[in-house]
Design a protein around this nucleic acid. Structure first.
Lengths: 160, 160
DNA sequence: CGTCCTCCCATTGACGCCCATAAATTCCCA
DNA sequence: TGGGAATTTATGGGCGTCAATGGGAGGACG
């Protein structure tokens, strides 16, 4: 498996450490960054995270812009400037800096959410409501799509 | 990691010294310049800084312009003329000359902002507002990128 | 002779490395 | 196939090292 899947909720200990789900660590190990690249999501109260693949993608975005252009500096500021490389200790734990926790409203527990090539870190309660909204949106969307295809199937394919 | 990432705010002591973030020192050490190349940003109240890689890049920019052209002289003046090589002492600290601090409005604290291949020095308060603007610009920019690039693998990193 | 700068040392707090425990899971073997 | 052992995972805590910061001693230069 080379993708981040499923969700896990782990506890932050008194030192601020959290275990990274084992399956996520396996994926990270394969793409050669000893650490987790992590930054605040631009439009959600959550943190985006990933490994070397994610870094490469961001590099690609920035390098496509002209050197010394405003655009490039802004993009680099918003992405690199707000990012952290979270090192994974030998027990598979990371420390999420205060600045990042604050953006996501994280206090005692963190929910790790696999999104395929990257994953997100959420405050558990917030993720619950976010998930509910996302599912509702999918249902609405499918109604529109489905209206043209078939009469009325139950909510089947797009679930979970 | 061979890139400048994340932001750090450090204090200037009574002798005018500031610690360079350890992770930035690591990156600098790898690219072989004894010190930090530093000059006022062209379009922001901040200082641009980096190592040998940045110097090479700037050389490349200047050399691309016609010799003895006005453009070339202006660019060379604006960049080289206002630059300084800041030496790093054995405790990892630099002294930022008055002229440079003035351009950035720096007084007691300096915020180091990683931008990948280079980094910037900001007055902390100013950087806060600058970051907010940058994030907004990126959100707008992403809409454009996302709309146009859908098929090619997509700007995943900047989404969400 | 005083100012500025370089080198060196001290302190404090954060972080990394190590070990311990408990629960859950996998594996093995009768 | 059932049960027990070994492994893995999540979590807790001790301790040494390093980074950030402050301050002093010595030297160069006006």
């Amino acid at each position: 498996m080379d993708q981040f899947v499923s969700t896990f909720t782990n506890k932050i200990d008194t030192k601020g450490r959290v275990s990274v789900p084992a399956s996520f660590r396996t994926v990270l190990a394969k793409d050669g960054l000893e650490g987790i690249y992590c930054y605040p999501s631009l439009d959600a109260p959550a943190l985006d995270a990933g490994g070397q693949r994610l870094v490469d993608k961001i590099n690609g975005l920035v390098e496509d812009l002209a050197p010394y252009s405003d655009e490039r500096d802004h993009l680099a500021t918003a992405l690199f400037g707000t990012s952290e490389i979270l090192s994974i200790d030998q027990d598979g734990r990371i420390i999420v800096p205060e600045r990042l926790r604050e953006h996501a409203g994280i206090t005692t527990h963190i929910t790790f959410v696999g999104l395929g090539e990257k994953f997100q870190l959420w405050e558990p309660k917030r993720f619950e409501t976010h998930l509910a909204e996302a599912r509702q949106k999918v249902r609405d969307l499918r109604k529109l799509l489905g209206a043209g295809r078939r009469g009325s199937g139950g909510p089947e394919g797009a679930r979970e």
